[in-house]
Nucleic acid binder design. Structure first.
Lengths: 173, 173
DNA sequence: TGGCGAACGTTTGGATCCGAACGATACTGT
DNA sequence: ACAGTATCGTTCGGATCCAAACGTTCGCCA
């Protein structure tokens, strides 16, 4: 599959920036913001693909299915719309993902006893056991791909990303 | 739509980490790597959604279609498999994306004159004009969502992400 | 010079993704 | 009480995503 753009070292990025500058002519572009944001997309795209091919393929789980099951493993039973929000997908998408996980015996659906509109979703024992094995492996791979960063750099990276996250979440209010 | 997880300030992250620690019991987890990588996914997911709803919706373009057209705008005519690699999608996916863009009159397909297996894809005048309007708007939004970061922080962010990118790309060799 | 493996883009099948429309259920005000 | 409104999860239509299979075209080499 693809890696997003063709190269990734700093010299090549400068060359790419020059191409962009030429293409846009005299338009004003904020290259620092461009580099920061576009690299977020590139890394996320490639890292997701990488995790699906290595760690998750062993258990035949998609990245979204893994994320959904992870939320249930850590926080326990959730109502469907909250689970969708926490997994970062629409509720329409969640219906399909939960159906897939349910078919595999990893999660269960239950109607809320006091409100029949609500669906409660929880991980089964098999689901929890799967995550107990899978997550340490997943985290070890997270550590490996960030191995060239110092602890301080990792903390700064997470902090900068949280800053962007707050701005994005502020928009929807 | 969803935002991925429920909160984003540093205090809440620590609470989330406590929940993870409780769920995994005595397993060893690298929380710095976890925070760094998971925030990449969260921000990318939400930023992509944000860009599609705000900037790209004005021109009815998906994020992938925008990325593909952006590559053609900056670097000019490309062979299909290279375009797919640079846009970060498989060649099978590219076929559909190019068909969508072609239907909209934004790109053109041409068979290579010396090798009929190859397909050359290029932006039309309409495609280039669209990007000349769209990209500055897109970049302005990139700048806005990273507004709380200093120039130094943006450079550090991009640099850390490139470091991860190099590790990921090294795997496929 | 012709066969045969390699490389190309496309097609296929199945999962995911969204927004919008839908039916079912709960709440609200009179 | 009960009609009207709001909210829930699901379904639907259409686009995107991948891997694998496929037919076409090229290059290699006997």
């Amino acid at each position: 599959m693809a890696t997003g753009f063709t190269s990734s070292n700093d010299d090549d990025l400068i060359a790419a920036e020059r191409d962009v500058q030429r293409a846009i002519g005299d338009l004003q572009i904020d290259f620092d913001s461009l580099a920061a944001v576009s690299n977020i997309f590139r890394v996320a795209n490639l890292a997701r693909y990488h995790m699906e091919r290595t760690v998750l393929a062993q258990h035949d789980l998609s990245f979204t299915a893994f994320t959904t099951l992870w939320v249930l493993w850590v926080w326990g039973e959730r109502e469907a719309r909250h689970l969708a929000a926490e997994a970062g997908i629409s509720k329409g998408t969640l219906t399909g993902v939960v159906s897939t996980l349910e078919r595999r015996g990893l999660v269960e659906r239950h109607t809320h006893p006091n409100d029949k509109r609500l669906v409660l979703i929880s991980a089964t024992d098999l689901g929890n056991d799967t995550m107990a094995v899978l997550f340490p492996t997943f985290n070890a791979e997270e550590a490996r791909i960030t191995d060239h960063l110092t602890t301080k750099q990792k903390k700064a990276l997470a902090s900068s990303l949280r800053s962007i996250l707050r701005t994005l979440e502020g928009d929807s209010k």
